[in-house]
Simulated scan of single mutants.
Amino acid sequence: MNGFASTKHTARAQRNNKIATIGFYTLGALVMLLIFWLLFTILSKGLPALRPDFLIKQPEEIDAGGGIGPVLFNSFYILFISLFISVPIGLGAGIYMAEYAPDNKFTGALRICVESLSSVPSIVFGMLGLAIFAEYFDIGLTILGGGVSLALLNLPMLARVTEEAVRAVPGEIREAGYALGMTKFHVIRTVVLPVAMSAIVTGICLVAGRAFGESAVIILTAGLSTSGEMWDFNLFSPGETLAVHLWYVQSEAIVEDARQIADKSAAVLVFVVLFINFVFRFPLWLSNRRK
């Protein structure tokens, strides 16, 4: 009887395993189909009509045929500023929380605060940036305000992702480094970070894509206009980005080809986000292939 019950239990477990496997494969396929459908829908509307001059021409307020040159440049410029500020601080904070911070109530409370800030709506950081730069420092809506506000938006997520990535590194690897006489910092720099780099790069990709497509923060801190120059590196110039321009064209623009401009801008936005992920991940993939 015991052998029969064991056989019956094994058969039921195998059946449940097959059902679960089929279910998870089905869910994965549905998610992939949804993603490809969204990409196809957006890119198919904008890419066929996209021309190189659209990427460098000035936007038009009344006449048809405007481009996205200054707003595209501002998008990359503000993204660079935000990553330049948030990546070193976020990585440092994550490493500190994972490797150096003592395990006490204060550290636990700090970790809860970081997790809470990660889920705060972006409009709140926009209001914070508006209060700091436009009201307290009285410099108005600028590229600098937009870049710093986006950095504040991305810092909690970067710190949390880095902490989890570093904590996920097996302790045996650290102990092997210590056994060779390496210092704690040397172990972190040469052993822990290379192992955790894949997860850290994923976090950077997430915040970079989020920053490039963010609109609420930019509207409140960088404004709805540009200086009118294609390559304006002045940090105190207004900094309308591609995402904000897409929202403006779709909702308030009066040009007759507003719909076409919105479709092409959306295609460029999606393509750039995909390109950012490729740029960050390709060196990592190449390094793994060489190993």
Rank of each mutant, 00 (worst) to 15 (best):
F137M: 06
N74F: 00
T21N: 07
G90I: 13
G108T: 08
V268H: 04
S227D: 02
V166S: 05
L50S: 01
V273H: 03
E175C: 02
A262F: 08
G181V: 03
M97C: 13
A267Y: 03
D53A: 08
G126L: 04
R189G: 07
L152Q: 02
S122H: 07
E61C: 06
N17R: 13
L128Q: 14
S251Q: 08
A196F: 04
W285E: 12
E172C: 08
A5M: 12
A253M: 06
R15A: 15
Q260F: 09
F80H: 01
Q260G: 13
E240G: 02
V201K: 05
D263A: 01
I139A: 05
C113N: 14
Y136C: 07
V148P: 07
A20P: 04
A98C: 10
F4T: 11
P59L: 00
Y100A: 15
G140P: 03
R15C: 09
F73H: 02
A222N: 04
Y248L: 14
Y136F: 11
A196G: 05
A109S: 15
V195F: 08
V148I: 15
H9D: 15
G140D: 10
R111H: 09
L30R: 02
I276V: 12
P48A: 10
A20D: 12
A13C: 08
T241L: 03
L141R: 09
Y25Q: 15
F280S: 06
V201I: 15
G239R: 05
L43H: 06
V71E: 01
A267S: 12
G108R: 13
D232Q: 06
F278R: 04
R259Y: 09
T183K: 04
P194W: 05
Q260Y: 05
R259G: 06
